[in-house]
């Protein structure tokens, strides 16, 4: 395998996490109204970011030790 799937999966969710967290932080408080007053963009963005970063970490580490 010259292609570790964890890397694109990790990269994609890291990007999605950053976008959502960004919208959550700077998108204005009225966005949270729909999601029952919870800033779901921020929280879920962070969850995705952590997931993506973990996938990336393990993917890249797996690559160095074949």
């Amino acid at each position: 395998m010259n292609f570790d799937l964890r890397i694109p999966v990790g990269l994609m969710f890291t990007i999605f996490g950053l976008i959502l967290a960004g919208v959550g932080l700077f998108g204005g408080a009225e966005l949270a109204q729909k999601s029952l007053g919870i800033n779901m963009n921020l929280w879920w963005g962070l969850v995705q970011f952590v997931f993506g970063a973990l996938m990336l970490f393990f993917g890249l580490r797996g690559k160095r030790t074949p």
């Binding site: 999605f16 976008i19 959502l20 919208v23 959550g24 998108g27 966005l31 949270a32 109204q33 729909k34 999601s35 029952l36 779901m40 963009n41 879920w44 963005g45």
Partner: peptide, 11 residues
């Protein structure tokens, strides 16, 4: 459409 604000909605 009901619960997701823009951002999550895209997802």
């Amino acid at each position: 459409a009901r619960y997701f604000p823009t951002g999550l909605l895209g997802l």
